[in-house]
Each structure stands twice: as structure tokens, then as C-alpha cells.
Amino acid sequence: MLDIRHIVKQYANHTALNDVSFIVPKGQIFGLLGPNGAGKTSLIRIINQITAPDAGEIYFDGERLSPKHIGRIGYLPEERGLYKKMEIGEQLIYLAQLKGLSKQDAKQRIKYWFEKLQIESWWNKKVEDLSKGMQQKVQFVATVLHEPDLIILDEPFSGFDPVNAQIIQDEILELNKKGATIIYSTHRMESVEMLCDHIALINKSKLILEGSVKQIKNQYKNQTYKIQYVLKPEYTSLLEHSSLYEIIQHEVGEESKLTIQLNPGINLNDVLLHLIPMMEIHQIFEIVPTMNEIFIDKVTSNY
């Protein structure tokens, strides 16, 4: 959907993006991650053609990104805003028209969305009369009204209560199912794990990690396992030292819990062969790092 190639963006005294390249596959939910000030917003603005890169290019569906693609992109900025004194219906029509929709189409689609979100009564209300969460909903509608192929959401859940966040999340998933590609920029890693197929992690203006979530998580697995067991009666304690693994954590109790990291070159079977004579294993699972851990690890080691 989006092919970002060697993007460089420089401001007077700092570099916002330094040779960033990655591909956003079509039909996926793509997580654009990074700490504050990493350059995410700069990149999003370049994709939206709000600013132009100093070097590099972006291809949209195989074509060089140009103003004709504006109508196919929907953008929900992190900093939300609507005209306070304007009526909601009128405002949405205006924003949709700017995206190239006809007035008639805009009206129809607004009606559709208002019914869907059960906010029909808001049409003639002014933005200033709505609560912040309500305004966010209106803004979300404004973002997706023109049925864009690419939807860029910058922290779409901030300001929503859990109920409304769920509603919006369901809508995002539905849009994705209908074929829209979604770029999702956030700091909430648990939602990344839940929603995203692919991610790109930007830190200090550079791309430091990119790939499918599954792949990245596999890559970051470090042979750590958690074993829940009960010792066999003939053993009073577990043989603490083994050349097979390092013990990371060991809780002894009625049912003991052991967390180990395998030494290089050792696989789980070797360890099990070693352990099984001593214990009755109730449960064993691999500890996979969370996206949060990967994020923190990558970003802090990058300093």
C-alpha cells in the first residue's frame, strides 16, 4: 500500500527523520511506534503531504505519492480539533467536501455513521456543546467519512472511556476487514499486540525495528521457559546447578514455579530429559517478550 523509501527530513537544528524506509502491506493494521519526539509525527505529516521530505520518496499503491491521493487517505491527528462554533453536520460535510466528496454523498454517509454510532441527535449541535469524548467520536467519523483506502490514526483511543474505546476499536477492525489499510500510531503497546499485524519502531529519527509482530516476537524470544512442577518424593530439593540452563526465578511451594533460560545450543528437550526424572511437570510454557518489553529494550539500548 505504502512504500516508504529513504525518507530524510531536516529542521534547522535537528534531523527529524534519517533515511527511514519500510513498507506498509495492503490490508493490514500497521503499528507505527516510537517514543515521544522520535519523528513519528514528522513521518505522518509527510505521508499526509502536509510537509515534504528533504530526500526520499513515498509510493502509494505503486504510484509516486501526489496530491491526487489526498482523497484516499484519512487522517486522525493526535491533537484533535474541530471548529467550535460550527454545527456538527455542517462541519462534517465541509471536511468531507475538502476530501473531494460531493455534498450529497457526504450527507448520506454522515447519516450512515451517525446511525451506526447512535449519535443522530448531534447533527445540529455545536462542537462546543459536546464533551471531549463526544468530539472525538465526531472526529473519528470525519476521518473515515470519505472511505479512505489508507487510514492514519494517531493515538485514536486517547480521551475515550473504555466503552467508547471498544466501540471505536470495533469500527477500526471492521474498516480493516472491509479492506482499508490502517497505520496506527500509539504508545499503548498492549493494543499494538492486539491489533497490529506489522510494526515499525522509530527512535531518534531512525527506523530501528520493523517486521510482522509475530516475527519480531519470535526474534526476541530468548529461550526462557516457565515450569510449574511438584518434586517427586525421593527428591528433597531441585538440583540447582546445571550446565543446561540458568535459573532466573525459583519459587518453592506446594506447586513450585521455576523460570529458566536455556544456555546456548541447548534445546527444551534436553532440559526436559534432565528434569523429568526429578519432578512431575504440571505446566510448561515459553515466556515470549511483550511488545512493551521489546519497545523499552530497543529504545533504551539505543541511547
Binding site: N48, Q49, I50, P67, I70, I73, Y75, P77, E79, R80, G81, L82, Y83, K84, L95, L98, K99, Q139, A142
Partner: peptide
């Protein structure tokens, strides 16, 4: 209001 960012993603 920050609406400017939404608008200039549609117009110059």
C-alpha cells in the same frame, strides 16, 4: 483548535 492539521491534510 488543532483543526488546521486536519484541514491541511486535505488542502494546501
Amino acid at each position: 483548535n488543532r483543526i488546521v492539521e486536519v484541514v491541511i491534510s486535505s488542502v494546501k
